[in-house]
Design a protein around this nucleic acid. Structure first.
Length: 241
DNA sequence: TCATTAAATTGTT
DNA sequence: AACAATTTAATGA
């Protein structure tokens, strides 16, 4: 739980909305699971927006119009509590799709999604989302898998919040971001700055830097300019120190 | 394509 | 929070 440190601007989804490029289509993991006819319709109705740092993709209480996924960049999923603090649930790196729950039930958003840096966000219209659920086995498998993995991640996130050891917090948060099922677009190098990671885990950049150095010495990760490479994902998940 | 400059990111106190 | 050092991105010849 930490204060809001990222500048906030409302994203005018209608103004910066555009058709996805071929390369951006390839960054959408579930398209390849569809049959040709299903895929054709999905690709025809997919939209992308260029979100700048601090832009909101969606806000609590707003009606759901799209099912969103990250093509490029990094988003932050959070909710505000009664004290006006912002509680971060998780970061959403490339390949991550979110909001199935609210989209399924046609409820308003239950959290805020904000860009931590310039990002490309894809959106599938709610109607198309439901059409795919009604027609595509492959799509259903993807969504089910997604829901299942996310459940596990939220449980892990609660444990992370209770941890007092900063090194552990950083390690577990990183492990969550490298989840290959939820975020297939990440691979073994995650483009994230230490400042962005600090925003996500709710620690100072200095402390994150120190934790990352420790993890590097242990051979778990390699620190690179503007990103991190995971050498041992299992160690990230289960490190006890 | 290369050299220079500005901006971003990291390491450290 | 501040600063220096390092890396990348942008610029223009």
């Amino acid at each position: 739980m930490h204060l809001q440190l990222v500048p906030s601007h409302d994203l005018s989804l209608h103004q910066r909305r555009r058709r996805p490029s071929f390369a951006e289509m390839q960054g959408i993991p579930w398209l390849s699971l569809l049959l040709p006819a299903e895929r054709e319709r999905a690709e025809a109705e997919l939209m992308v927006v260029d979100a700048g740092t601090g832009d909101f993709i969606c806000r609590i209480g707003k009606p759901v119009t799209y099912w969103f996924g990250v093509v490029d960049g990094l988003l932050k999923m959070s909710a505000d509590n009664a004290q006006g603090m912002t509680m971060t649930f998780t970061g959403v790196p490339p390949g991550g799709w979110f909001g199935e729950g609210t989209a399924l039930k046609r409820e308003p958003y239950r959290y805020n999604i904000q860009a931590l840096r310039s990002s490309v966000v894809a959106g599938l219209p709610l109607e198309t989302f439901h059409w795919l659920l009604d027609h595509s086995i492959g799509f259903n498998r993807f969504v089910m898998n997604q829901l299942n993995e996310r459940l596990g991640q939220f449980i892990a996130a609660r444990e992370i919040d209770r941890m007092n050891n900063p090194d552990l917090r950083v390690a577990r948060s990183l492990a969550a971001l490298f989840n290959p099922v939820l975020y297939p677009g990440v691979g073994d190098i995650l483009r994230i700055t230490q400042q962005e990671l600090a925003y996500l885990v709710g620690l100072s950049r200095q402390r994150v830097n120190e934790a990352l150095s420790t993890l590097q010495v242990q051979g778990t990760i390699r620190i690179e300019y503007g990103g991190l490479r995971v050498l041992n994902l299992a160690a990230l998940r289960s490190s006890i120190h």
